[in-house]
C-alpha cells in the first residue's frame, strides 16, 4: 500500500511531464502527406528541451523541498505542452482541427446553435435537482441553529452547505460548456460531403450529452446529495468515514468517466479529421 502511495505521489508528475514529448515522438506522419520536416524537428527538439528542464526542476524541488505543492509543476509543464499542441498537427494533420499544410479553408454558413439536443426541459431538470438539494441542505441550518445548537453539527452543516452550493455553480458551468460544443471547429470540404456533416453532428451531440450528464447531473446531484446527507445525519451516527469514502469513489468514477469520454471524443475527432483530409485531397485533385 505504501509503495502504491509513493508511486502515486512521486511517479505521477514525471509521467505527466514526459507524456507530451513521448506522444509527439511516437506520432507518425500519414503516408502521402507532405509536411515541413525542418519545422517539426525544430519544435520536437524544443519540446524535449522543455521537458528535460521540467524534469530537472521537479527533481531539484524534491531534493530541496520534498513536500512542495505538486500542482506547481503545471507551470513547468506548460511550455512543453503548448509546443506539443503546435507541433502535433504539423506532424500529423489528423491531430488538429485544421491541416496546417492546406491553405484553402471551407466552412458552413449554417448556425449550429439551433441544433442543440439538450433542450430547456433538460436544463430545468438539472436546476430543479441542484437547487432542490441546496434547499434541502440549507433547511437543516434552521434546525441546527435553533433546535440543536451543537457546534459540531453547525460545522458539519457549513461543510454540507459548501458542498451543495457547488451544485448550481456546476450546472451554470455545464450550460456554458454544452453551449461551447456548437463552436468547436468544424472545417468542411468544398463539395459539402454529407457524411462528414453527419459525423460532425454526431460527435457534437455526443459531447453535449456527455457534458450534460457529467457536469449538470452526476456531479451536482452526487456532491449535493452527499451534502444533504451530511447536513441531516446526526453527528452521533459518525458517518464521516463512510461519507469520505463515498465521496472519493464518486469523484474517482466521475474522473474516470470524464477521461473515457474525452478519449472517445478525441479519437472520433481524429477519424473525422482524417476523413476531411481525404476529402480535401479529392477537392484539390478535382481542381487540377
Amino acid at each position: 500500500m505504501a509503495l502504491l502511495e509513493n508511486i502515486m505521489t512521486y511517479g505521477f508528475w514525471p509521467i505527466m511531464i514526459l507524456s507530451p514529448a513521448v506522444w509527439l515522438t511516437c506520432v507518425r506522419t500519414p503516408a502521402g502527406v507532405e509536411v515541413d520536416r525542418d519545422q517539426i524537428a525544430r519544435l520536437t527538439r524544443w519540446v524535449w528541451i522543455s521537458t528535460l528542464l521540467a524534469i530537472a526542476l521537479y527533481v531539484t524541488l524534491l531534493i530541496l523541498w520534498a513536500g512542495f505543492p505538486k500542482p506547481m509543476m503545471l507551470g513547468a509543464i506548460a511550455p512543453a505542452f503548448t509546443l506539443t499542441l503546435r507541433a502535433l498537427p504539423l506532424k500529423n494533420p489528423d491531430w488538429g482541427p485544421h491541416d496546417p499544410n492546406v491553405n484553402t479553408r471551407t466552412a458552413s454558413l449554417v448556425n449550429r446553435r439551433p441544433t442543440m439536443p439538450v433542450t430547456r426541459a433538460w436544463w430545468l431538470l438539472a436546476w430543479v435537482a441542484a437547487l432542490g438539494l441546496l434547499i434541502a441542505a440549507a433547511s437543516r441550518g434552521l434546525f441546527a441553529f435553533e433546535v440543536l445548537p451543537d457546534r459540531n453539527e453547525r460545522v458539519m452543516w457549513y461543510w454540507a452547505m459548501f458542498m451543495t452550493a457547488f451544485g448550481p455553480f456546476m450546472v451554470a458551468s455545464a450550460m456554458w460548456a454544452v453551449a461551447k460544443t456548437r463552436e468547436e471547429p468544424e472545417p468542411r470540404d468544398a463539395a459539402n460531403d454529407q457524411r462528414l456533416e453527419e459525423s460532425y453532428a454526431s460527435l457534437r451531440n455526443f459531447r453535449a450529452w456527455c457534458f450534460y450528464w457529467l457536469f449538470a447531473i452526476t456531479m451536482p446531484v452526487g456532491f449535493s446529495g452527499f451534502g444533504v446527507v451530511m447536513a441531516w445525519a446526526p453527528v452521533s451516527a459518525n458517518l464521516g468515514g463512510a461519507l469520505g469514502m463515498g465521496g472519493g469513489i464518486l469523484g474517482s468514477v466521475i474522473g474516470i468517466a470524464g477521461a473515457v469520454f474525452g478519449t472517445v471524443a478525441g479519437l472520433r475527432r481524429v477519424r473525422i479529421n482524417r476523413e476531411l483530409r481525404e476529402l480535401q485531397a479529392n477537392d484539390r485533385q478535382a481542381a487540377v
Binding site: 482541427p97 485544421h98 479553408r105 466552412a107 458552413s108 454558413l109 449554417v110 448556425n111 449550429r112 446553435r113 439551433p114 456548437r182 463552436e183 468547436e184 471547429p185 468544424e186 472545417p187 468542411r188
Partner: peptide, 20 residues
C-alpha cells in the same frame, strides 16, 4: 443561398471553422 431572416453562424463558430 442565404435568404432574408436566415441566421448566420456566430463570429466564434465561423472563426473556429475557418481557423482565423
Amino acid at each position: 443561398g442565404l435568404k432574408t431572416g436566415d441566421e448566420l453562424p456566430t463570429v466564434r463558430q465561423l472563426a473556429a471553422d475557418l481557423g482565423v
